[in-house]
Design a protein around this nucleic acid. Structure first.
Lengths: 208, 208
DNA sequence: AAAATTATGGGAAACTATTAACATAATAAA
DNA sequence: TTTATTATGTTAATAGTTTCCCATAATTTT
């Protein structure tokens, strides 16, 4: 039961169900979900079953109860505070991203080595790196986003080892090892593009 | 043989092997790769086997020959031209990202509806949206990155339907359907963060 | 109230991915 | 040259995921 795909599906269900709820729907069938999300209805039911979400034969599932259960599973009662390490282009883009707050995620600070970037008075303050460990412990931060240059990625990870940080979303193309205490998930944009190129190449070859 | 994981592993192999090559190594063993990439040596050998990469019993694999084979598989002889749709914060961050070129990826233009963003004279020109279909066909673009606001994502996809575009890397949180002719891969940063939160929550619970 | 309908839930089957095991070929050592 | 060593490559085993199938319960229709 350590399935990332399953959790990501659960998040898709949540998105869809919140939308349906906003349109006034109270109930939903596994077939409805299947149609809009490209996930088979059996898999939807199996996911629900796995997480203890139950419906009524013939009556479907109650949206409110599913959403409650999902929030319970994901543990989202309070707003989740996240910090950004590396206030470069991508870091700054994420700081100004409007989509986080309505999902209960708040970027509360960023950190950078470049003294020209430091600005502690902004909405999202940018602090120098040497304040990071104290900040993490003072604010009990569990998650950070890593958007530093690749050359300093490894070194930066070492700085936050042995803090409360338990999860890192890594935007650098550097392969970083997870440990039992620290989960590192990587978004490698170059790899995503290259993978897409491979698929498109294959599509075109098949058409010839 | 339509396995995304397998292709992403292949890309990791490529990264590592190029690094080893730059350090002067000529040969590599499946065990070496396994150690650094957290991929079991059997799986490395199986991947190589699947893609027709062969080595010598006792002698390992020749790095140069693997790299050649991987490039052949990924079809990367010439530079791959990519466009960005949506010159917002994330779009602009990607435009200035330095990591693409050395992987043979070139962002050659961006498109936006906002007339204030248009600037056709920059290094990476930003054109108005209505020039996009002509640009795609003139330049034979196959891949685009979608960084528009969520509310216009669906509509934007329709604009480039029936062009040469065969792959979209979607940064919007909108669920977009792939078709046989158009592969859409989504990077949903919110979902990645939420997934991380789930994992971290579970870690902490286990420690109690 | 009985019959027909319909969506869940759960177990079995099919499929996919990963690991384990080992025979074999290439190399090195004795 | 013979023996020992070692890493590949292939087959078998295992683990993990998704789909199939259908009995069952809830609901609607007749």
């Amino acid at each position: 039961m350590n399935n990332k795909g399953q959790i990501l599906r659960l998040l898709s269900y949540k998105n869809l169900l919140k939308h349906l709820q906003s349109l006034g729907f109270k109930k939903v069938f596994s077939d409805n979900i299947s149609d809009t999300l490209e996930i088979s209805s059996s898999l939807v039911r199996k996911d629900f079953g796995n997480f203890g979400i139950t419906g009524n034969r013939k009556g479907g599932y109650e949206i409110e109860s599913i959403l409650g259960k999902i929030d319970e599973i994901l543990g989202k009662d309070e707003i989740q505070k996240v910090i950004i390490i590396g206030a470069g282009r991508i870091g700054e883009a994420l700081m100004s991203y409007q989509g986080f707050l309505k999902e209960g995620i708040q970027i509360i600070a960023a950190f950078d080595v470049d003294s020209k970037k430091i600005n502690e008075d902004k909405d999202i303050p940018i602090f120098p790196m040497d304040k990071i460990t104290k900040f993490i412990s003072d604010n009990n931060i569990k998650i950070c986003i890593l958007t530093v240059p690749p050359s300093v990625a490894k070194h930066t990870i070492e700085l936050i080892q042995n803090t409360q940080i338990g999860g890192i979303l890594n935007f650098t193309p550097v392969k970083l090892q997870s440990t039992p205490e620290l989960t590192i998930n990587t978004i490698n944009i170059v790899h995503e593009l290259e993978n897409l190129m491979y698929v498109v190449n294959k599509q075109n070859k098949l058409e010839d």
